[in-house]
Protein backbone atom coordinates (compact mmCIF):
# COMPACT_ATOMS: atom_id res chain seq x y z
CA UNK A 1 0.00 0.00 0.00
CA UNK A 2 1.22 3.46 -0.79
CA UNK A 3 1.12 5.88 2.09
CA UNK A 4 0.11 9.23 0.63
CA UNK A 5 0.13 11.17 3.88
CA UNK A 6 3.90 11.48 3.84
CA UNK A 7 5.02 14.23 1.48
CA UNK A 8 7.30 13.29 -1.34
CA UNK A 9 10.89 13.99 -0.46
CA UNK A 10 13.92 14.44 -2.59
CA UNK A 11 16.10 11.48 -3.31
CA UNK A 12 18.63 11.16 -0.53
CA UNK A 13 21.95 12.91 -0.94
CA UNK A 14 25.28 11.39 -1.83
CA UNK A 15 25.89 10.29 1.77
CA UNK A 16 23.39 7.52 1.14
CA UNK A 17 24.62 6.57 -2.33
CA UNK A 18 27.32 4.13 -3.30
CA UNK A 19 30.30 4.25 -0.99
CA UNK A 20 33.83 3.79 -2.19
CA UNK A 21 35.54 2.05 0.70
CA UNK A 22 34.06 -1.41 1.04
CA UNK A 23 33.87 -1.77 4.81
CA UNK A 24 32.64 1.62 5.87
CA UNK A 25 30.17 2.39 3.09
CA UNK A 26 26.83 3.34 4.53
CA UNK A 27 24.16 0.66 4.19
CA UNK A 28 21.81 0.70 1.19
CA UNK A 29 19.25 -1.44 2.90
CA UNK A 30 18.69 -1.78 6.65
CA UNK A 31 16.37 -3.75 8.82
CA UNK A 32 15.92 -2.00 12.15
CA UNK A 33 14.36 -3.95 15.00
CA UNK A 34 11.93 -5.71 12.69
CA UNK A 35 9.33 -8.12 14.01
CA UNK A 36 6.92 -10.30 12.10
CA UNK A 37 4.07 -12.17 13.71
CA UNK A 38 1.84 -14.61 11.86
CA UNK A 39 -1.62 -15.10 13.31
CA UNK A 40 -2.74 -18.71 13.15
CA UNK A 41 -5.59 -20.63 14.78
CA UNK A 42 -3.04 -22.20 17.12
CA UNK A 43 -1.80 -18.84 18.35
CA UNK A 44 0.55 -16.11 17.24
CA UNK A 45 3.77 -17.25 15.64
CA UNK A 46 6.58 -14.76 16.21
CA UNK A 47 8.56 -15.64 13.07
CA UNK A 48 11.00 -12.76 13.41
CA UNK A 49 11.50 -11.09 16.77
CA UNK A 50 13.68 -8.00 16.60
CA UNK A 51 16.33 -8.27 13.92
CA UNK A 52 18.83 -5.56 12.93
CA UNK A 53 20.75 -6.04 9.70
CA UNK A 54 22.58 -3.80 7.22
CA UNK A 55 23.35 -4.54 3.58
CA UNK A 56 26.19 -2.44 2.14
CA UNK A 57 27.07 -1.87 -1.52
CA UNK A 58 29.41 -4.52 -2.93
CA UNK A 59 29.26 -6.51 0.30
CA UNK A 60 27.59 -9.75 1.27
CA UNK A 61 25.53 -10.31 4.36
CA UNK A 62 24.75 -13.95 4.79
CA UNK A 63 21.85 -15.23 6.88
CA UNK A 64 22.18 -18.83 8.03
CA UNK A 65 20.05 -21.06 10.23
CA UNK A 66 17.66 -24.01 10.16
CA UNK A 67 14.22 -23.94 8.52
CA UNK A 68 11.74 -21.94 10.52
CA UNK A 69 14.35 -19.61 12.03
CA UNK A 70 13.00 -16.57 10.17
CA UNK A 71 15.57 -16.23 7.38
CA UNK A 72 13.05 -16.11 4.56
CA UNK A 73 10.62 -13.90 6.49
CA UNK A 74 13.43 -11.42 7.12
CA UNK A 75 14.32 -11.48 3.44
CA UNK A 76 10.72 -10.90 2.42
CA UNK A 77 10.54 -7.87 4.70
CA UNK A 78 13.82 -6.56 3.31
CA UNK A 79 12.40 -6.84 -0.21
CA UNK A 80 9.20 -5.08 0.79
CA UNK A 81 7.14 -8.19 0.02
CA UNK A 82 5.77 -8.11 3.56
CA UNK A 83 5.57 -5.22 5.99
CA UNK A 84 7.14 -5.65 9.42
CA UNK A 85 4.73 -5.83 12.37
CA UNK A 86 7.17 -3.63 14.30
CA UNK A 87 10.38 -1.84 13.39
CA UNK A 88 11.32 -0.49 9.99
CA UNK A 89 13.02 -1.28 6.71
CA UNK A 90 15.18 1.57 5.43
CA UNK A 91 16.27 1.94 1.82
CA UNK A 92 19.00 4.56 1.36
CA UNK A 93 18.00 5.82 4.81
CA UNK A 94 14.29 6.20 3.93
CA UNK A 95 11.60 4.13 5.60
CA UNK A 96 10.02 1.91 2.95
CA UNK A 97 6.62 2.15 4.67
CA UNK A 98 6.57 5.94 4.21
CA UNK A 99 7.54 6.05 0.54
CA UNK A 100 5.45 7.68 -2.13
CA UNK A 101 4.68 6.05 -5.44
CA UNK A 102 7.83 7.21 -7.23
CA UNK A 103 10.17 6.30 -4.40
CA UNK A 104 8.52 2.97 -4.03
CA UNK A 105 8.91 2.22 -7.71
CA UNK A 106 12.57 3.13 -7.40
CA UNK A 107 12.92 0.85 -4.37
CA UNK A 108 11.20 -1.99 -6.20
CA UNK A 109 13.60 -1.59 -9.09
CA UNK A 110 16.72 -1.34 -6.92
CA UNK A 111 16.06 -4.28 -4.65
CA UNK A 112 15.69 -7.56 -6.52
CA UNK A 113 14.82 -11.02 -5.27
CA UNK A 114 16.08 -14.37 -6.59
CA UNK A 115 13.99 -17.28 -5.43
CA UNK A 116 15.01 -20.75 -4.43
CA UNK A 117 13.30 -22.86 -7.03
CA UNK A 118 14.01 -21.93 -10.67
CA UNK A 119 11.36 -24.44 -11.74
CA UNK A 120 8.67 -22.45 -9.95
CA UNK A 121 9.91 -18.90 -10.29
CA UNK A 122 9.91 -18.72 -14.10
CA UNK A 123 6.65 -18.52 -16.00
CA UNK A 124 6.54 -21.67 -18.16
CA UNK A 125 4.69 -20.01 -21.05
CA UNK A 126 7.11 -17.12 -21.43
CA UNK A 127 10.35 -17.27 -23.36
CA UNK A 128 13.59 -16.19 -21.75
CA UNK A 129 13.41 -12.95 -23.71
CA UNK A 130 9.89 -12.27 -22.55
CA UNK A 131 10.72 -13.03 -18.91
CA UNK A 132 13.77 -10.82 -18.75
CA UNK A 133 12.45 -7.93 -20.81
CA UNK A 134 9.17 -7.66 -18.86
CA UNK A 135 10.82 -5.60 -16.15
CA UNK A 136 12.79 -3.53 -18.64
CA UNK A 137 9.63 -2.57 -20.44
CA UNK A 138 7.63 -2.06 -17.26
CA UNK A 139 10.15 0.42 -15.89
CA UNK A 140 10.66 2.09 -19.27
CA UNK A 141 14.31 1.20 -19.49
CA UNK A 142 14.22 0.23 -23.17
CA UNK A 143 12.71 1.99 -26.17
CA UNK A 144 11.73 -0.57 -28.78
CA UNK A 145 11.77 -4.30 -29.29
CA UNK A 146 15.15 -4.30 -30.99
CA UNK A 147 16.73 -2.52 -28.05
CA UNK A 148 14.98 -4.86 -25.62
CA UNK A 149 16.45 -7.87 -27.42
CA UNK A 150 19.89 -6.33 -27.47
CA UNK A 151 19.81 -5.50 -23.73
CA UNK A 152 18.42 -8.95 -22.91
CA UNK A 153 21.20 -10.61 -24.89
CA UNK A 154 23.79 -8.56 -23.01
CA UNK A 155 22.27 -9.63 -19.72
CA UNK A 156 22.40 -13.29 -20.74
CA UNK A 157 26.06 -12.92 -21.58
CA UNK A 158 26.73 -11.32 -18.24
CA UNK A 159 25.33 -14.40 -16.49
CA UNK A 160 27.33 -16.70 -18.78
CA UNK A 161 24.43 -17.99 -20.85
CA UNK A 162 26.35 -17.92 -24.12
CA UNK A 163 25.76 -17.70 -26.99
CA UNK A 164 22.92 -15.46 -25.91
CA UNK A 165 21.10 -15.63 -29.26
CA UNK A 166 20.51 -19.34 -28.78
CA UNK A 167 18.86 -18.87 -25.41
CA UNK A 168 16.69 -15.81 -26.09
CA UNK A 169 13.73 -17.69 -27.50
CA UNK A 170 13.88 -20.77 -25.32
CA UNK A 171 11.19 -21.72 -22.86
CA UNK A 172 12.09 -22.73 -19.28
CA UNK A 173 11.37 -26.42 -19.93
CA UNK A 174 14.10 -26.47 -22.57
CA UNK A 175 16.74 -25.50 -20.03
CA UNK A 176 18.50 -27.20 -17.14
CA UNK A 177 18.09 -26.11 -13.51
CA UNK A 178 21.36 -24.20 -13.55
CA UNK A 179 20.45 -22.40 -16.76
CA UNK A 180 17.04 -21.46 -15.39
CA UNK A 181 18.57 -20.05 -12.26
CA UNK A 182 20.87 -17.96 -14.47
CA UNK A 183 17.79 -16.60 -16.24
CA UNK A 184 16.39 -15.65 -12.83
CA UNK A 185 19.66 -13.86 -12.04
CA UNK A 186 19.57 -12.06 -15.40
CA UNK A 187 16.00 -10.97 -14.71
CA UNK A 188 17.07 -9.51 -11.37
CA UNK A 189 20.08 -7.88 -13.01
CA UNK A 190 17.96 -6.27 -15.73
CA UNK A 191 16.76 -3.75 -13.17
CA UNK A 192 20.31 -2.60 -12.48
CA UNK A 193 19.76 -3.33 -8.79
CA UNK A 194 21.73 -2.05 -5.84
CA UNK A 195 20.76 -4.99 -3.69
CA UNK A 196 20.06 -8.58 -4.63
CA UNK A 197 18.28 -10.76 -2.10
CA UNK A 198 19.02 -14.41 -2.85
CA UNK A 199 16.92 -16.88 -0.89
CA UNK A 200 18.57 -20.33 -1.04
CA UNK A 201 19.24 -19.62 -4.69
CA UNK A 202 21.89 -22.29 -5.09
CA UNK A 203 20.55 -25.06 -2.91
CA UNK A 204 18.52 -26.79 -5.63
CA UNK A 205 21.50 -27.03 -7.97
CA UNK A 206 24.11 -29.72 -8.43
CA UNK A 207 27.44 -29.10 -6.73
CA UNK A 208 29.20 -28.57 -10.04
CA UNK A 209 26.76 -25.88 -11.14
CA UNK A 210 26.51 -24.30 -7.70
CA UNK A 211 30.09 -23.04 -7.78
CA UNK A 212 29.81 -21.50 -11.23
CA UNK A 213 26.58 -19.70 -10.28
CA UNK A 214 28.23 -18.42 -7.09
CA UNK A 215 31.13 -17.18 -9.19
CA UNK A 216 28.70 -15.38 -11.49
CA UNK A 217 27.05 -13.72 -8.50
CA UNK A 218 30.50 -12.86 -7.11
CA UNK A 219 31.33 -11.09 -10.35
CA UNK A 220 28.22 -8.90 -9.98
CA UNK A 221 29.21 -8.12 -6.42
CA UNK A 222 32.77 -7.14 -7.32
CA UNK A 223 32.27 -5.50 -10.72
CA UNK A 224 28.91 -3.79 -10.29
CA UNK A 225 29.02 -3.15 -6.54
CA UNK A 226 25.76 -4.99 -5.93
CA UNK A 227 25.06 -5.60 -2.24
CA UNK A 228 23.80 -9.07 -1.33
CA UNK A 229 21.50 -10.39 1.32
CA UNK A 230 22.30 -14.05 0.86
CA UNK A 231 20.28 -16.70 2.59
CA UNK A 232 21.46 -20.25 2.87
CA UNK A 233 21.50 -23.20 5.21
CA UNK A 234 24.79 -24.42 3.76
CA UNK A 235 27.65 -23.02 5.78
CA UNK A 236 30.25 -24.03 3.22
CA UNK A 237 28.44 -21.96 0.61
CA UNK A 238 28.08 -19.08 3.07
CA UNK A 239 31.77 -19.20 3.84
CA UNK A 240 32.78 -19.19 0.19
CA UNK A 241 30.43 -16.47 -0.98
CA UNK A 242 30.58 -14.16 2.04
CA UNK A 243 34.27 -14.53 2.89
CA UNK A 244 34.83 -10.74 2.73
CA UNK A 245 31.45 -10.01 4.25
CA UNK A 246 29.47 -10.92 7.32
CA UNK A 247 27.47 -13.85 8.57
CA UNK A 248 24.45 -13.56 10.84
CA UNK A 249 23.26 -16.79 12.41
CA UNK A 250 19.55 -16.86 13.19
CA UNK A 251 17.74 -19.11 15.62
CA UNK A 252 13.97 -19.00 16.19
CA UNK A 253 13.50 -15.48 14.90
CA UNK A 254 16.55 -13.84 16.48
CA UNK A 255 20.15 -13.29 15.49
CA UNK A 256 22.38 -15.17 17.94
CA UNK A 257 25.80 -14.49 16.42
CA UNK A 258 26.81 -11.90 13.86
CA UNK A 259 30.30 -10.99 12.70
CA UNK A 260 32.88 -11.11 9.91
CA UNK A 261 32.68 -14.43 8.05
CA UNK A 262 36.23 -15.69 8.67
CA UNK A 263 35.83 -15.11 12.42
CA UNK A 264 32.38 -16.68 12.70
CA UNK A 265 33.18 -19.75 10.58
CA UNK A 266 36.69 -20.48 11.79
CA UNK A 267 36.15 -19.55 15.40
CA UNK A 268 32.44 -19.87 16.21
CA UNK A 269 31.49 -18.76 19.72
CA UNK A 270 27.77 -19.40 20.08
CA UNK A 271 27.03 -23.05 20.87
CA UNK A 272 24.41 -23.08 18.12
CA UNK A 273 26.88 -21.83 15.49
CA UNK A 274 29.38 -24.39 16.74
CA UNK A 275 26.83 -27.17 16.35
CA UNK A 276 25.92 -26.02 12.83
CA UNK A 277 29.53 -25.96 11.68
CA UNK A 278 30.31 -29.23 13.38
CA UNK A 279 27.37 -30.91 11.64
CA UNK A 280 28.63 -30.26 8.12
CA UNK A 281 29.74 -33.42 6.33
CA UNK A 282 33.23 -32.79 5.02
CA UNK A 283 34.29 -34.47 1.78
CA UNK A 284 37.26 -36.06 3.49
CA UNK A 285 36.88 -39.52 5.04
CA UNK A 286 39.77 -39.13 7.50
CA UNK A 287 38.44 -35.83 8.78
CA UNK A 288 34.91 -37.20 9.00
CA UNK A 289 35.78 -40.24 11.09
CA UNK A 290 38.49 -38.69 13.22
CA UNK A 291 36.61 -35.98 14.99
CA UNK A 292 34.66 -35.73 18.18
CA UNK A 293 31.13 -34.51 17.52
CA UNK A 294 29.18 -31.97 19.53
CA UNK A 295 26.23 -33.68 21.22
CA UNK A 296 23.09 -31.56 21.37
CA UNK A 297 20.76 -32.20 24.26
CA UNK A 298 17.85 -32.53 21.82
CA UNK A 299 17.71 -32.64 18.05
CA UNK A 300 14.16 -31.31 17.74
CA UNK A 301 13.61 -27.60 17.31
CA UNK A 302 11.00 -26.07 19.70
CA UNK A 303 7.69 -24.81 18.34
CA UNK A 304 7.53 -21.06 17.69
CA UNK A 305 4.14 -20.95 19.35
CA UNK A 306 5.56 -22.47 22.52
CA UNK A 307 9.01 -21.01 23.04
CA UNK A 308 10.97 -22.06 26.12
CA UNK A 309 11.61 -19.45 28.81
CA UNK A 310 15.04 -17.82 28.92
CA UNK A 311 17.41 -18.54 26.07
CA UNK A 312 15.59 -20.09 23.09
CA UNK A 313 18.43 -22.54 22.58
CA UNK A 314 18.74 -23.82 26.15
CA UNK A 315 16.74 -27.07 25.70
CA UNK A 316 19.28 -28.18 23.07
CA UNK A 317 22.40 -26.37 24.27
CA UNK A 318 25.43 -28.43 25.35
CA UNK A 319 26.70 -25.48 27.44
CA UNK A 320 23.44 -25.12 29.35
CA UNK A 321 23.84 -24.03 32.95
CA UNK A 322 21.03 -23.69 35.43
CA UNK A 323 20.26 -20.09 36.27
CA UNK A 324 20.16 -17.36 33.63
CA UNK A 325 19.92 -19.76 30.67
CA UNK A 326 16.40 -20.91 31.52
CA UNK A 327 15.05 -17.63 32.89
CA UNK A 328 16.58 -14.62 31.10
CA UNK A 329 16.82 -14.24 27.33
CA UNK A 330 20.42 -13.33 26.50
CA UNK A 331 20.74 -9.97 24.67
CA UNK A 332 22.79 -9.68 21.49
CA UNK A 333 25.80 -7.75 22.77
CA UNK A 334 28.90 -6.54 20.93
CA UNK A 335 32.14 -8.27 21.86
CA UNK A 336 35.68 -7.97 20.54
CA UNK A 337 34.96 -8.91 16.94
CA UNK A 338 31.27 -9.83 16.76
CA UNK A 339 27.79 -9.65 18.26
CA UNK A 340 26.87 -12.59 20.42
CA UNK A 341 23.83 -13.66 22.45
CA UNK A 342 24.87 -16.26 25.02
CA UNK A 343 25.03 -16.03 28.81
CA UNK A 344 27.69 -18.68 29.20
CA UNK A 345 30.14 -17.51 26.53
CA UNK A 346 29.64 -13.79 27.22
CA UNK A 347 29.87 -14.33 30.97
CA UNK A 348 32.92 -16.60 30.92
Amino acid sequence: MIDRTVPATQRPGPAHGHGTGPGDASPVLSLQGVHQVFRTPRGDVPAVAGVDLDVRPGRVLCLVGESGCGKTTSARMAAGLAGPAQGSVLFRGRDVAGMDRRERSDFRRSVQFIHQDPYASLNPVRTVYSTISAGLRRHGLVGDRREARRVTAELLERVDLTPAEEHLDKYPHQMSGGQRQRVAVARALAMNPEVIIADESTSMLDVSIRVSLLNTLGKLRDELGVGFLFITHDLAVAKYFAWDGEIAVMYLGRVVEHGPTPRVVNDPQHPYTKALIDAVCEPDPDLAHGRERIRLRSSEIPELTDLPPGCDFHPRCPLYEQGDCDSVRPPLVPGRDRLLACHVVNGG
Binding site: S176, G178, D206, V207, S208, I209, R210, V211, S212, N215, L235, A236, V237, K239, Y240, W243, P262, V265, N266, I277, V280, E282, P283, D284, L287
Partner: peptide, 19 residues
Protein backbone atom coordinates in the same frame (compact mmCIF):
# COMPACT_ATOMS: atom_id res chain seq x y z
CA UNK B 1 37.07 -30.05 -5.94
CA UNK B 2 33.79 -28.25 -6.56
CA UNK B 3 32.71 -28.61 -2.93
CA UNK B 4 33.83 -25.67 -0.81
CA UNK B 5 35.11 -26.96 2.54
CA UNK B 6 33.83 -25.42 5.75
CA UNK B 7 36.93 -25.87 7.88
CA UNK B 8 40.20 -24.04 7.42
CA UNK B 9 41.03 -21.10 5.21
CA UNK B 10 39.19 -20.18 2.07
CA UNK B 11 39.90 -22.55 -0.79
CA UNK B 12 38.45 -21.51 -4.10
CA UNK B 13 36.38 -24.43 -5.40
CA UNK B 14 36.76 -25.41 -9.03
CA UNK B 15 33.78 -24.94 -11.24
CA UNK B 16 32.73 -27.65 -13.65
CA UNK B 17 30.78 -25.91 -16.38
CA UNK B 18 28.15 -27.56 -18.52
CA UNK B 19 26.14 -30.64 -17.73
Amino acid sequence: NSVPPVTGDLRVPESLPGG
